[in-house]
Amino acid sequence: MSSTTTTNKIKWWSGGKSPFNMEYGKLMMWYFLMSDAFTFGAFLISYGTIRFSQNFWPDPNVVFNAFPGAGHANLPLAFVSVMTFILIMSSVTMVLAVHAGHHRNKKGVVKWMAWTIVGGLAFLGCQAWEWWHLITGTHAVLADGKLELIGQTMRGNPWGNLADVNLVVDALKNTSHETLVSMVHEHHQNMTHETLMGMSHEQLTGMLNVAELHIREKGPVAFGGYFYGITGFHGFHVFSGVVINIIMLIMAQKGVFEKRGHYLMIEKVGLYWHFVDLVWVFVFLCFYLI
């Protein structure tokens, strides 16, 4: 507590010094991050408002259950846990870089900045896979008396309420031949697309067990816009953070900060990077956990 007693004796508001005891650029980074927190906060609260205005909202455990290379295995939240772990880990490497900067340890700064960049790129790669999977992975939904195959896009959401089985049976008659072929193909991988295309509508419907298909209705359209909008805006922050980190790595390597006598720039970019991790805590909370 020695520091507290020392700082208490200083008259912070008497002029001639910063009452915040902080270098100008770092203070402005804090204020920028505070405003950015309100931007993200507004997005997430808007999402919350729409979610609270709906009777039904898709269960994140059902939406986010895929893992790269695991096929159709049901693994709820597994992949996003990996992404969260990567981001926490890169936050640790960042704070270790800042720590090395405090001790003017150039080698340490370069090493930990490099690991932070690796973590950021790994996170972006994971997000790219997740988006690709959600957009291209189609699901059969009951809409307008027929079945349709749709992915998770800005226009449609395939995770609505479970549809009534009798309505699904009726809908099979109105469903297009191509849709039926794709649905049957998913459960009978050994039969080629051409063989199935040659079969009649009745033969194809006979091969589908409606009770086991768990066909859903379309879910709330707003889900896609909010999910891609907010995770995309966060991903953009990660991307710009990686770019800034690379610039800082190069500057540190060239000895720019060593000549200046301090590594304050590493502290500032560190603040930005931790903020990106902080936002992910809440994105993870709002979209994946609750």
Binding site: K17, S18, M22, E23, H102, G261, H262, Y263
Partner: peptide, 19 residues
């Protein structure tokens, strides 16, 4: 390694970074 000192004039009180 030497610790960074007096990095900016705005800073009146410098606390020691942990080892």
């Amino acid at each position: 390694m030497e610790l960074q000192q007096n990095v900016a004039t705005e800073i009146t009180f410098h606390h020691e970074p942990s080892n």
